[in-house]
Structures are given as structure tokens and as C-alpha cells.
Design a protein around this nucleic acid. Structure first.
Lengths: 176, 176
DNA sequence: AAATTACTGTAGGGATCGCTACATAAACAG
DNA sequence: CTGTTTATGTAGCGATCCCTACAGTAATTT
């Protein structure tokens, strides 16, 4: 499972073939299909696993007793850190998964994205209801940008600098 | 050529097959290969065409007699407008092209991206040399985010709001 | 008009894709 | 030890991919 997660994260859903997976796992196609059902079946399980291992722990960052602007800035910085943590698995598995060419896989990844957006929006709306929509859009768009930038080769320092600049905008929008 | 550009912009390089193109153009494969050489050959010509038709006119926005922060904010707003202009061809053809699974096509798109980044960096460095690198990263990362958000379905209003928030960060970083 | 060139359509090659039928081997129940 | 079940490996199916050899038509040249 870990190697499959690395494969999908490194190359993306489309670029990983079942043959790649079976070779990496040292199994043959029939064993693969007995275990996971399909390529998408494996991907769905990888997404679940990612939510628990590689994804950003929203609950640990978006704390109720923390200034909203500070929490959102910390979220962006954490994204920068995770997206540049490993040289091969740059960016976000979910965000990158939402743009693959398989409709089923795309929708599965989008479901995780929508769920994360909802958590962020609810957190903001709790104290700044009138800013929740546009700030959620801004945070998620910035995270998508950070994921893309990481894939383009930006290292940790560059991603962090970008995340901090975005944090400035949030602080300003929330009235310092 | 226009229909090919729309095809690549709508579905991405990988998801467009030569059969799709030949059918859309009403020609047969041999005629296609006589005209364009290969799928990549067509894509390279589409990228060139895009630079003149659909891409953002950097020179018209990044004017020397304009405050840098204002120009960069205008650039982001223009990106928001273009990325949401048509319902099918959302996002940026070049930015989306940099993440396809064909190495040759990816590098061709990346070349356009690098060139655009260089223009932006030079424009900033002219008056704010110490901020050029991180502001260029921020602007390009935000544009990548806007392109992704457009593909995720954000409409013009949402993209514009995000772009304006990012503009705030730029103004603040350049000392208001 | 005859001959050469340029082009188009048919048909298919070679490779890879996700996936599976079938036969063989291993593990277990009686 | 026999019989059943489970799992693995071999081999390949049908579809699609990018691309091309070849034959036939149209246009141009002599």
C-alpha cells in the first residue's frame, strides 16, 4: 500500500499502470485484482490511506481557540512543508488527483477535496461568516497553486515564502 | 488549428487522441501526419498560437509607468478573467500542459511558462530587485492556483475575488 | 494526351492499456 | 493420504494508443 501510494503520488493516476503496480508489489495481475478489484479500487484505498498519513491534519491546525487568520496562515505553511517534504512525492495527492483523465478517479479525489473545503469553510464561518466563502476559495486556490509550484520544482524555502505572502492577504482581509 | 487548440485546452494533451483530432478536423491520419508530423508537432503549434491569442498579454499589463503592485494585481485579475472566459476551456493551456504525462509536451509547455516567469521577474526586478524572486513565485503560484480553481469550477466572480485577495498581499509586500 | 507529382483513404502494425480465463501449486479439512 | 479450497502464474483478450505502408485519385507538368 505504501509503495502504491508513492507511485500514485509521484506519477499521478493516469501515468501509473497496473503493470507498474504489480511489478512494484512483486505480485501478478490476478493477485492484484483479487486484492483490490481494479486500478481504481487501489486508488480509492490509497486516497483513504493518504488522508491518515500524508494529508494535512486540518483539525490539529484549525483550532477553535486560535485567531482565524493565524490558523489559516499556519495551514498554508503546513501545506508548503508537506508538498515539498519528499523530492519525488511533491504536491498534494488529492489535488493532483482531481485533474487526472479517469472520471471515476477524478471524482473520488474531488470528494476528498470538497470535504476538506467544507471543513475550512465551516471553521472560518464560525467567527467570520461573511468572509467564509471568499477566504475558503483563496486558501484552497493558494493550496492548489502551492501543489502545482511544488511539482514545478519550487523547494521548501520558495513555497514557504509564497505561503507567508498569502498569509498576509488573509490577515489583511480579516482586518489585521 | 483553432479547433485543435480548443480540444487541447478543454481535455488536456493526454486525453486528446490523434483520432479525436482527425475526426474534429475532418481529415484522415495520413493527412494529419503530413501536416503536423506528430501529435506533439500539433501541440507545439497550438502552444505558439495560444501565445498570440489566448495567453495573457504581459507587455500590455506590465507597463513601465505603472506601479508594480498595481500591475501585478491587474495581471492576476486578467488571469482570472481569461481562465473563466469560456466554460469549456477553463484555466491556462500552458499551465495545464506542464502537468501532462508526455515528457516532450510537458517540456514544451514548461518552456513557455519559464519565459513568462522571466518576463514577470524582470519587470519586478527593475524597480524592486530584492522582492523580484519571491513576488514572481507568488504571482506564478497564484496563477497556477487560479488555473486549477477554474478547472475545479470556480466562476469568474470567485476567481476575481481570489485574485484581488492575492493582490492585497502584493501591495502589502511592496510597502503599500 | 501521357507522365509525373502530390495528396487522400483504407487498412493495419506494434505497443500498451486494464483486465481475466484457465491451469497449476499450495494450504487446509476430513 | 485424499479431497477440497484458496491462491498464484501463464497466457492472452479486446480495446485503444500513435503512427505508417500502400494503393488509388486528383492535380500539375511536359
Amino acid at each position: 500500500m505504501a509503495v502504491a501510494q508513492t507511485l500514485f503520488h509521484t506519477r499521478g493516476y493516469d501515468a501509473v499502470s497496473v503493470a507498474d503496480v504489480t511489478e512494484a508489489l512483486g505480485i501478478k495481475p490476478p493477485s492484484f485484482y483479487a486484492a483490490f478489484g481494479s486500478k481504481f479500487g487501489l486508488y480509492a484505498r490509497v486516497l483513504d490511506r493518504y488522508a491518515g498519513t500524508g494529508a494535512i491534519p486540518l483539525d490539529a491546525i484549525l483550532l477553535p481557540d486560535r485567531p482565524v487568520a493565524e490558523a489559516l496562515a499556519a495551514l498554508l505553511e503546513e501545506a508548503a512543508r508537506r508538498y515539498a517534504a519528499a523530492p519525488c512525492t511533491t504536491g498534494c495527492l488529492v489535488l493532483e488527483g482531481t485533474r487526472c483523465n479517469d472520471a471515476e478517479a477524478r471524482e473520488a479525489a474531488s470528494a476528498f477535496l470538497v470535504a476538506a473545503e467544507a471543513v475550512i469553510r465551516r471553521y472560518i464561518a464560525d467567527r467570520h461568516p461573511e468572509d467564509a466563502d471568499r477566504l475558503t476559495d483563496f486558501v484552497c486556490t493558494t493550496m492548489a497553486g502551492l501543489s502545482a509550484a511544488a511539482r514545478h520544482g519550487h523547494d521548501l524555502d520558495r513555497l514557504l515564502a509564497t505561503a507567508r505572502l498569502a498569509g498576509l492577504a488573509i490577515a489583511q482581509a480579516l482586518g489585521d
